[in-house]
Design a protein around this nucleic acid. Structure first.
Lengths: 159, 159
DNA sequence: ATAAGGTTCATACTTTAGGGTGATTTTGGC
DNA sequence: GCCAAAATCACCCTAAAGTATGAACCTTAT
């Protein structure tokens, strides 16, 4: 209960704490400047600017207007012979529902790496790679990694 | 509308409430410490809230609405379309000392067949395929069938 | 707030792959 | 015919791959 509540509202709590610290800082500053009353306008102006900035920062933080990458597949005429360029068949990838991570694992598989080596390369556990590879096999409708690599190459999913 | 607005700005509202509570707390502390300047604290607090709200409003007003991502997919012409013949690198084959049978096994490996399936295909026993594959791995200087397939393709030993 | 998908990890289990060793039988060339 | 290489097969063992199930966490979409 308690940890879940904290994790859910940790942002809010953090903001609250930051605000508290800020206000105490202001209070301290005020005590230092309490004698110079005639500078109160400057003080208030600073507060206004500070809190306006805080508000802007808050709004930007809480609303995620993340700009997503727009991927446009252009019509490509394959370079016959010399050019060894690889153009991934994004249509097949999305049709099969392969995720980015699964693609990564698939590529490393194609390079002949063992599950253990893939795990080390991607900084995850062996079990994770097993899960990914199993999902890849399901989605590609194959039974073995060698089949997966072969099929993926035929479909131009990997080079 | 209303419920979505609340859920979207839940954090902001919560922040406001926290601010109010904190301000009252500060007020209480101040009463304990200094009796003067009541009006000024309220004034500053109001300014803080006001300008925070202003900042939030400004940010929300000035940030553009969420960008809709559109992924356009066009036809990609694959290298497999036209007649692309494979010319085996006989020099590499003889250099590595690969026998015909070993080449057969290697090709079937590349098609994703298991040792059991290769054995059935070639009408030999599983142990025989194991022996062949082990020799292939030795000669190719690899440790796994996936590596063998990758290396063999790079060397144009198999298509 | 809820739902859904993606990533991560674990445990237990079965299957396959691969290494090592030794052996027998074909086969092609001298 | 003899010999070397190739091809065949067996047994044992370890390592790796793969299956099944459940779960936690996070991001994103609704």
């Amino acid at each position: 209960m308690t940890p879940s509540f904290f994790s859910k509202h940790k942002h809010t709590i953090l903001y609250g704490v930051c605000l508290a610290v800020l206000l105490f800082l202001l209070k301290w500053l005020e005590l230092r400047l309490v004698i110079v009353h005639h500078h109160m306008e400057v003080y208030i102006g600073a507060i206004a600017i500070l809190f306006t900035a805080l508000g802007i920062w808050l709004a930007l933080k809480l609303t995620q207007p993340k700009v997503k990458t727009v991927v446009v597949e252009k019509e490509v005429y394959l370079p016959e012979g010399n050019g060894r360029e690889f153009t991934q068949n994004a249509a097949e990838v999305s049709r099969l529902g392969l995720s980015n991570r699964e693609l990564e694992v698939l590529q490393l598989m194609a390079e002949g790496l063992s599950n253990q080596e893939i795990a080390a390369r991607l900084f995850v556990s062996l079990n994770t790679i097993k899960t990914h590879s199993s999902r890849v096999f399901e989605k590609l409708d194959v039974k073995r990694r060698t089949q997966a690599v072969d099929k993926a190459k035929r479909l131009s999913i990997i080079p």
